[in-house]
Amino acid sequence: MISFLNDYKHELITSGIVLLSLLIIRAITNFTITKVAKKNGINDARIRLIRRYLSVLFLVIAIFVEAYIFGTNPKEITLLFSSVFAIIGIGLFAIWSILSNITSGIIMFFNFPYKVGDKIEIHDKDFPITAIIEDIRAFHLHLRLENGDLVTYPNNLILQKAVTLIEKDAIDDDGEAV
C-alpha cells in the first residue's frame, strides 16, 4: 500500500485536484441552472433532469481525464471511446427520436417561452391542439385538452410547430383550469 502511494503520488495529487475542480464546477453549474430556472418559473422536476444530464457529462469528462492522468495513451482512449460510441450510435440509430426528444427537452429548458399552467394552441394542419400545459418532461409535454383528455406531445414536435400563447397561468392553485 505504501509503495503504491509512493509510486503514484503525483497522479493521486493531480487526480484529487481534477476531481475537486470538477465538483466545484458542477456545484457552480447546478447553482446557475437553479437560479436561471427559478427566475424563469421552471418546475423542480425539469431542474433535476437538466442537473442529472450535466452530472453524467461531468462523469464522462472525469473518466477521460483520470485515464490520461494515470498514463493511458490518448490513442488508446480515443480508440476505446470511438468504439463505444460507434456501438451506441448503431444501437441508438433505430431510436433516434428519443435522442431528438431529449435534446429538445434540454433546449426547451433554457429557451421555451411557455411554462406549466399556460394555455397554448399548437398550429398543426392535421391535428390542431388547444390545451393547458400540465407538465414538461424529458421526452414530451403533458397537455390537458378542454374536454379533459390528456395528450402527450413529443418535445421535438413542439419545437417544429407554431405555438400561440392563449392565456398565461390558466391553472389556479387547486390545479383546475381557469
Rank of each mutant, 00 (worst) to 15 (best):
residue 15 S to G: 04
residue 15 S to F: 03
residue 15 S to C: 06
residue 15 S to V: 02
residue 15 S to Y: 02
residue 16 G to C: 10
residue 16 G to K: 14
residue 16 G to Y: 13
residue 16 G to V: 14
residue 16 G to F: 13
residue 16 G to D: 12
residue 16 G to I: 13
residue 17 I to K: 06
residue 17 I to T: 12
residue 17 I to H: 05
residue 18 V to M: 07
residue 18 V to W: 03
residue 18 V to R: 05
residue 18 V to I: 05
residue 19 L to K: 04
residue 19 L to E: 12
residue 19 L to M: 13
residue 19 L to F: 11
residue 19 L to W: 11
residue 19 L to V: 12
residue 20 L to V: 15
residue 20 L to C: 13
residue 20 L to R: 13
residue 21 S to Y: 09
residue 21 S to Q: 12
residue 21 S to H: 03
residue 21 S to R: 06
residue 22 L to V: 14
residue 22 L to K: 03
residue 22 L to C: 14
residue 22 L to R: 13
residue 22 L to F: 15
residue 22 L to A: 11
residue 23 L to T: 08
residue 24 I to V: 15
residue 24 I to N: 01
residue 24 I to K: 06
residue 24 I to M: 07
residue 24 I to E: 05
residue 25 I to V: 15
residue 25 I to H: 11
residue 25 I to L: 15
residue 25 I to F: 15
residue 25 I to T: 09
residue 25 I to R: 15
residue 26 R to S: 14
residue 26 R to W: 06
residue 26 R to H: 13
residue 26 R to V: 14
residue 27 A to D: 14
residue 28 I to A: 08
residue 28 I to P: 06
residue 29 T to P: 00
residue 29 T to A: 10
residue 29 T to K: 01
residue 30 N to W: 11
residue 30 N to D: 14
residue 30 N to Y: 12
residue 31 F to W: 12
residue 31 F to R: 12
residue 31 F to I: 12
residue 31 F to A: 12
residue 31 F to T: 04
residue 31 F to C: 07
residue 31 F to E: 07
residue 32 T to P: 05
residue 32 T to K: 00
residue 33 I to R: 01
residue 33 I to Q: 07
residue 33 I to A: 05
residue 34 T to Q: 06
residue 34 T to S: 10
residue 34 T to K: 08
residue 34 T to W: 10
residue 34 T to I: 04
residue 34 T to R: 09
residue 34 T to D: 11
residue 35 K to T: 08
residue 35 K to M: 07
residue 35 K to Q: 15
residue 35 K to N: 06
residue 35 K to C: 14
residue 35 K to P: 14
residue 36 V to N: 09
residue 36 V to H: 06
residue 36 V to F: 13
residue 36 V to I: 07
residue 36 V to A: 13
residue 36 V to W: 05
residue 37 A to W: 01
residue 38 K to C: 02
residue 38 K to E: 14
residue 38 K to R: 13
residue 38 K to I: 08
residue 38 K to T: 15
residue 39 K to M: 06
residue 39 K to A: 07
residue 39 K to N: 12
residue 39 K to T: 06
residue 40 N to D: 12
residue 40 N to P: 04
residue 40 N to V: 10
residue 40 N to I: 09
residue 40 N to L: 15
residue 41 G to Y: 01
residue 41 G to K: 02
residue 41 G to C: 09
residue 42 I to Y: 07
residue 42 I to T: 11
residue 42 I to N: 02
residue 43 N to R: 04
residue 43 N to P: 03
residue 43 N to A: 00
residue 44 D to G: 01
residue 44 D to V: 04
residue 44 D to P: 01
residue 45 A to D: 08
residue 45 A to E: 02
residue 45 A to G: 04
residue 46 R to I: 00
residue 46 R to Q: 03
residue 46 R to L: 00
residue 46 R to V: 00
residue 46 R to E: 01
residue 47 I to E: 04
residue 47 I to K: 04
residue 47 I to A: 05
residue 48 R to T: 11
residue 48 R to Q: 06
residue 48 R to P: 03
residue 48 R to W: 02
residue 48 R to M: 09
residue 48 R to V: 01
residue 49 L to A: 10
residue 49 L to G: 08
residue 49 L to W: 13
residue 50 I to W: 00
residue 50 I to S: 00
residue 50 I to K: 00
residue 50 I to G: 00
residue 50 I to Y: 00
residue 50 I to T: 04
residue 51 R to D: 08
residue 51 R to T: 03
residue 51 R to F: 01
residue 52 R to C: 09
residue 52 R to V: 09
residue 52 R to T: 12
residue 52 R to G: 09
